[in-house]
Structures are given as structure tokens and as C-alpha cells.
């Protein structure tokens, strides 16, 4: 998540524009899915890993950030071994790992603000067509990323409150109050956005 994964630095990816990185990410995704070559996927993974490790993260932290997604990919690979050849599974696995690693590298080198600005620019043609308001869409995206830690903290607080009162902790009993409290906060956040003049013009 961009909220907590951006790191300061001066690597090649840090210096590249957000647009160039997003275009490279989309182009490499299409390219890797069009290619069925194991060698191409392997080379792509090595390049992505090299880029990822160049952004200034320690190997341990770098692995921690993508570890859960890699585990999911390995699980998927294990399931696929029942249906596909080893070479096909290896191709599929390396493709996903390459893309996840590259995306993690882009995430680590892009601030949410820069990302929002780029999304706003990219959506301007749709705004001119009257389909949407580009700044509002990028703001919504930014808000999701900004408030994920807050929602998670609230989830933990509700869970602890259940425990403190000796109540069983069940997802269904937590989700109700979580949604209500989050919506209540949303009212204040909307008011704050207005008072801070984001939609003043």
C-alpha cells in the first residue's frame, strides 16, 4: 500500500516520472502476458528484482513487503501443478512474481501525492467529456490509501473492546460497528475536505 511503502531515495526509479513508471508497468504487464517464454519471464523477474533492490530497501524489508503476495503466488502454483506442466507453472509463477516485484518497486518510489497528480492528469480527457471530475477521482483514491491504517486501527480497537468485555470476537459482530464508525468519520472527513478548500474553486 502506498500509504506506508514509499521510501525516500535517489535511485533510477525515484528519478523517473510517475507517468513513465506507470506506462512501463502497464507495458511490461501486457508484454509478459503475451509472451509464453520461460526465459523471458525469468529475465523480467531478474530485472524487476534488481530494480526493486536498487531503491534503497534492505533485502529483508524488500522481501517482507512482497512476501505475502509471493506466498499466494506459490499457493496458486502448487494448485496449478495438478493441471499444468512444470514449465507452464514456472512461466506463470515467474510472470506474476516479476510483475509484483516491479509494482512494489514503483510503489516504493512514488508518493501518493505524485500518484494522485498523475491520475488527475490521465483522467482529464474523461473530465472534458463530462464523465467525471478528475481531481475527485484521484482524491477518492488518495483517501482510500490514507485511511486504511485508521480503519485497521479502529478494527483492532473494536476487537479489543470485545475481548475486554468478554465477548467472542466474530467478524460479523465487528464489521457492523466498524462500518458505522467509519461512516461517521467519513462525514467529518468530507467536512474537512470542504473546509480545507479542495473543492473551493
Amino acid at each position: 500500500m502506498l500509504t506506508s511503502l514509499h521510501i525516500e531515495g535517489n535511485s533510477l526509479l525515484h528519478r523517473l516520472s510517475v507517468r513513465a513508471k506507470l506506462i512501463a508497468l502497464v507495458a511490461s504487464s501486457i508484454g509478459l502476458f503475451l509472451s509464453g517464454s520461460l526465459a523471458v519471464q525469468a529475465i523480467a523477474f531478474v530485472i524487476a528484482a534488481a530494480l526493486y533492490l536498487s531503491v534503497g530497501l534492505s533485502p529483508k524489508e524488500a522481501l517482507k513487503r512482497v512476501g505475502f503476495v509471493f506466498l499466494t503466488i506459490f499457493f496458486l502454483a502448487a494448485v496449478n501443478l495438478f493441471y499444468l506442466s512444470v514449465a507452464e507453472v514456472a512461466t506463470l509463477t515467474l510472470r506474476l512474481m516479476a510483475l509484483v516485484t516491479f509494482a512494489a518497486a514503483v510503489t516504493a518510489t512514488t508518493t501518493i501525492s505524485a500518484f494522485m497528480d498523475e491520475i488527475t492528469i490521465l483522467l482529464l480527457p474523461l473530465e472534458r467529456l463530462g464523465w467525471l471530475k478528475a481531481a475527485d477521482v484521484s482524491l477518492a483514491l488518495g483517501l482510500v490509501l490514507r485511511f486504511v491504517p485508521d480503519i485497521f486501527a479502529r478494527y483492532q480497537a473494536i476487537r479489543e473492546a470485545h475481548r475486554a468485555r468478554g465477548l467472542p470476537v466474530r467478524p460479523l459482530t465487528i464489521i457492523g460497528p466498524l462500518i458505522i464508525l467509519t461512516l461517521k468519520d467519513a462525514d467529518t472527513i468530507a467536512a474537512a475536505i470542504d473546509t480545507r478548500g479542495f473543492r473551493r474553486q
Binding site: 506506508s4 514509499h6 501525492s113 478548500g197
Partner: peptide, 24 residues
């Protein structure tokens, strides 16, 4: 606001302070 966390919209302090100046 009473809970200032609610009015910090962006994830990083500098970005948040710049937030109100956008669209100007």
C-alpha cells in the same frame, strides 16, 4: 476539528499541508 486526525487527508505531513493549495 476536535479530532485533527480526521482533517489530515494525505498520508505524509508535507503532502497534507500542500493539499489545501491544490486546485488553486
Amino acid at each position: 476539528f476536535q479530532n485533527p486526525q480526521h482533517q489530515l487527508i494525505m498520508p505524509v505531513v508535507a503532502e497534507d499541508i500542500a493539499f489545501g493549495l491544490k486546485n488553486r
